[in-house]
Amino acid sequence: MMISAKIKELIQQYSNELIELRRKLHSEPELSWEEVKTTAFICDYLEQLGIPYRKTEPTGVIAEIKGGKPGKTVALRGDMDALSVEELNKDLPYTSKEEGKMHACGHDAHTAMLLIATKALNEIKDELTGNVRLLFQPAEEVAQGAKEMVKQGAMQGVDNVFGMHIWSQMPTNKIACQSGPSFAAADLFKVTFKGRGGHGAMPHDCIDAAIVASSFVMNVQTIVSRTVDTQSPAVVTVGKMDVGTRFNVIAENAVIEGTVRCFYPETRDYIEKQLQHYAESVANIYGATAIVEYTRGTQAVINEKVSAKLVQQVAIAAFGEDALYAEKPTMGGEDFSFFLEEAPGCFALVGSGNPEKDTEWAHHHGKFNIDEDALVTGAELYAQYAWAYLKTI
């Protein structure tokens, strides 16, 4: 069977607990690498279920359900960190208790859904042909948690890995998982220009770093618009510019920070080189100097074809043909990519946008919230994917 009727029954049975778990986690957000209470809560929950686990350092949990029959190992990942965002949903009974911290991206839902999926899978473990590895991951928002969990053995012996993200831009309960690019590689760059400062009334004696930096910002967009292959999507965004010290002083220094997003390695390499070239060329025009620091963040999330097809089949079997949704790839970043470097797998999106419940706000916004009807869908998708993979692959 593609799906388990028992899993569906159990997830429905635990639906109220699922909502309670999510609300508890939402009200107690913890930032990346600070998920101490969340880690302890997950460990306590696993202990009650009798599931062996180990903590990763400094936060995070790896657990495993051993099936009654030998087989492969499939990993399910749920991230759990919050953001430095002030919650604007002050009227919610489960609003954040931590000032300036909020689950503004849905990681509270991911953790709750994976816990309930774990509970359901544990109840039918004797029927499982293989094992289910459970990855409760910290620090996704700073693109470090997955890589660190891999270093600490999270993917050893894993044959396939599956993750998902609640998605406010899709209607509630719709599921998207196409093969190929899903999330973009997300890099950071910092350019430091040095000119020669002086009096604002005597620009002829100076090299104005503000002019140099402004010229760079205006010209750097042509890397994408005029030099990158139009069939290779890419984004270069300058998000921060720190120039000068005083209104009547010519700026000696300027620091620019931004991000690069793309899907293909050759595009990534090319843009990195072009940023260096543009910065040095602009600096040379004005007699300034430029130092470029380029930091590679997440890799692109590329869904493996067989795994993505399995998600689609599971979704249809569990929720019907209408559940599938054709969502376009996003330029957002996801460090799930580091798990995919270790084993084939895929990453799905589960819709939670509902205008009647005011849950269509963008991720990372202070009014972000989810339609809790999507929780059952996500929890079941986790569990049914693991069941199907172990039964059919």
Rank of each mutant, 00 (worst) to 15 (best):
4 S>M: 01
4 S>E: 07
7 I>A: 02
16 N>M: 08
17 E>S: 03
26 H>A: 09
29 P>C: 00
30 E>K: 03
31 L>Y: 00
31 L>H: 01
35 E>R: 04
44 D>K: 12
49 L>G: 06
49 L>A: 06
52 P>E: 02
59 T>K: 06
62 I>G: 09
70 P>T: 00
77 R>I: 10
80 M>L: 09
84 S>Y: 02
85 V>T: 02
100 G>Q: 06
105 C>K: 12
107 H>E: 15
107 H>Y: 13
108 D>G: 11
110 H>V: 13
112 A>M: 15
115 L>E: 08
115 L>I: 06
117 A>D: 13
120 A>R: 04
121 L>C: 13
125 K>G: 10
128 L>G: 13
129 T>L: 02
132 V>R: 12
133 R>N: 15
134 L>T: 14
138 P>T: 00
144 Q>L: 13
144 Q>I: 04
145 G>F: 01
146 A>G: 13
146 A>H: 11
149 M>S: 04
151 K>F: 00
152 Q>L: 00
159 D>W: 02
160 N>A: 08
166 I>L: 13
166 I>K: 07
168 S>Q: 08
172 T>H: 04
173 N>H: 11
177 C>E: 14
178 Q>I: 07
195 G>H: 10
202 M>K: 07
204 H>K: 05
207 I>L: 01
208 D>S: 06
208 D>K: 04
210 A>T: 05
212 V>A: 02
219 N>T: 09
220 V>P: 15
222 T>D: 06
222 T>L: 00
225 S>W: 02
232 S>D: 10
240 K>D: 09
242 D>C: 03
244 G>E: 03
245 T>E: 13
247 F>Q: 02
252 E>S: 04
253 N>K: 09
254 A>F: 04
257 E>H: 05
259 T>F: 03
261 R>Q: 05
265 P>A: 00
276 Q>A: 00
277 H>Q: 03
283 A>G: 15
285 I>S: 08
286 Y>G: 04
290 A>V: 01
291 I>M: 11
293 E>M: 03
297 G>R: 02
300 A>D: 12
302 I>C: 09
304 E>Y: 07
306 V>P: 15
309 K>H: 11
311 V>A: 03
311 V>L: 05
319 F>N: 14
319 F>R: 14
320 G>S: 13
321 E>A: 12
325 Y>Q: 13
327 E>H: 09
332 G>T: 03
333 G>S: 06
335 D>I: 05
340 L>E: 14
343 A>H: 06
351 G>V: 06
358 D>A: 00
360 E>Q: 09
361 W>A: 11
362 A>C: 08
362 A>T: 08
365 H>G: 03
369 N>Q: 12
370 I>V: 10
373 D>I: 00
376 V>R: 08
378 G>F: 01
383 A>Q: 08
383 A>W: 05
384 Q>G: 07
385 Y>D: 13
388 A>W: 06
389 Y>I: 03
390 L>M: 02
392 T>C: 08
